[in-house]
Amino acid sequence: MQVQLKFFASLREQLGSGERLEIPAGTSVAALRAQLCARSAVHAEALAPGRAVRCALNQQMVASDSAVIPADAELAFFPPVTGG
């Protein structure tokens, strides 16, 4: 299934604005983040588990990284404080 990724603020500077990505059904936010970290050193640094990175799933803040991503979802990753 496909999802749309978006990156904002400093993450956008490091990783670009976003992309469409094919992921397996049942993928959690945590699993997707781990998959992205495995892509490159830049991804690993920007999205490392210890880094304060927030995620919104279909424009709703994700309360738990164990949330399962539905098909055609939009995921936005951003630091806890962004500019206006």
Rank of each mutant, 00 (worst) to 15 (best):
A38W: 00
T27L: 13
A56I: 00
N58R: 08
A9P: 02
G18E: 01
R20W: 05
P49A: 09
A48M: 12
E45F: 08
A46P: 11
A25D: 13
A48I: 10
L32G: 05
R51W: 07
G50I: 07
C37P: 02
I69Q: 13
A48E: 06
R39Y: 04
C37N: 06
S64R: 09
M1P: 14
C37I: 02
F8D: 00
R51F: 11
N58A: 04
Q14E: 14
L36E: 06
A25S: 15
R33T: 07
R54Y: 04
V68Y: 00
K6N: 12
G18A: 08
R20F: 05
G16R: 03
V81H: 00
L5W: 05
V53G: 01
F7Q: 08
A63T: 09
E45T: 14
A73S: 05
M61H: 13
V3L: 15
L5C: 10
V62C: 06
S66N: 11
A67G: 04
G50F: 09
L21F: 00
A52W: 15
L5M: 07
M61Y: 11
C37G: 00
E13D: 15
V62K: 08
S66F: 00
I23R: 03
E19W: 00
F7M: 09
V68P: 14
R20C: 05
S10W: 15
Q14R: 14
Q59P: 08
E74S: 09
V53R: 01
N58G: 07
G84S: 02
R39N: 11
A63I: 01
E22S: 11
A9S: 12
V68K: 10
P24R: 13
F78C: 11
R12T: 13
A46T: 06
Q14M: 14
G26T: 04
G18W: 01
Q60N: 10
G83T: 03
A34G: 03
N58L: 06
C55T: 12
V3A: 14
A34K: 02
P79I: 11
T27K: 04
Q14L: 15
F7E: 07
A31M: 09
L36F: 06
L36G: 13
A9R: 02
S17P: 13
I23Q: 02
D72F: 02
A44Q: 08
R12I: 14
E22F: 03
L15S: 12
S28P: 08
G26E: 01
A34F: 00
P24M: 13
N58E: 05
L32W: 02
S28R: 05
K6F: 07
L21T: 00
L11Q: 15
